[in-house]
Amino acid sequence: MNQRDAFLKEFRGPTLGTVTPQSSADELFQNEVLRPILKLQNDLFIVSFLNYTSKNHIDFNAHSIEKRMTIIDNAIQKDIKFRNSLKGMIIGLFTAEEYALYIKNSSSLNKRMMGMLIERLKSQIQLFETI
């Protein structure tokens, strides 16, 4: 393992979630790689989303909770440029080995990544009001 890979693994922290012998390869990747990265990058995701709403002239706090949830969904699911930016924030913290695993099943892992990120932002919706 090279220095960058060792640094990234230590910097991201331990596995989050349950890993069992019955866990699928995607589930292992999710808990060992994606969850720690999402946790590490959380503040950046929040600031990035706020920047997205500002640039797109969306008065996020003027809407109901349900509408805010829809705005989060639409921003990540339908705005390909924003989605790719978020993916880059995650993929940039992969080791070379993790990236090799990722490209073998990128479609499924992208769905997991974006689903987890959407839920993470929705669960912290109250933070958008204070920033």
Results as ranks from 00 to 15, higher is better:
residue 68 R to H: 02
residue 69 M to W: 00
residue 80 I to W: 01
residue 76 I to V: 15
residue 74 N to R: 12
residue 94 F to S: 00
residue 101 L to H: 01
residue 105 N to S: 15
residue 109 L to G: 00
residue 97 E to K: 10
residue 77 Q to N: 09
residue 105 N to L: 09
residue 84 N to G: 13
residue 81 K to I: 14
residue 101 L to S: 07
residue 66 E to F: 09
residue 92 G to E: 05
residue 96 A to P: 03
residue 80 I to S: 10
residue 67 K to T: 10
residue 88 G to M: 10
residue 82 F to T: 02
residue 90 I to E: 06
residue 99 Y to Q: 03
residue 97 E to N: 06
residue 74 N to H: 11
residue 106 S to A: 14
residue 95 T to Y: 09
residue 71 I to F: 08
residue 95 T to F: 07
residue 102 Y to C: 01
residue 100 A to T: 14
residue 92 G to P: 04
residue 73 D to R: 08
residue 70 T to A: 08
residue 73 D to S: 07
residue 106 S to F: 14
residue 94 F to R: 00
residue 84 N to K: 14
residue 89 M to W: 03
residue 110 N to F: 07
residue 74 N to Q: 14
residue 112 R to M: 14
residue 111 K to R: 08
residue 77 Q to L: 11
residue 72 I to S: 06
residue 87 K to Y: 12
residue 96 A to V: 12
residue 113 M to T: 13
residue 96 A to Q: 13
residue 80 I to T: 12
residue 79 D to N: 15
residue 89 M to D: 08
residue 99 Y to A: 00
residue 86 L to V: 12
residue 90 I to W: 10
residue 75 A to Q: 02
residue 80 I to P: 00
residue 92 G to C: 06
residue 96 A to E: 15
residue 91 I to T: 10
residue 74 N to G: 10
residue 112 R to V: 15
residue 82 F to H: 06
residue 79 D to A: 13
residue 78 K to A: 08
residue 89 M to A: 05
residue 113 M to L: 14
residue 100 A to Q: 15
residue 107 S to L: 11
residue 69 M to T: 04
residue 67 K to L: 02
residue 72 I to W: 03
residue 105 N to H: 15
residue 86 L to Q: 11
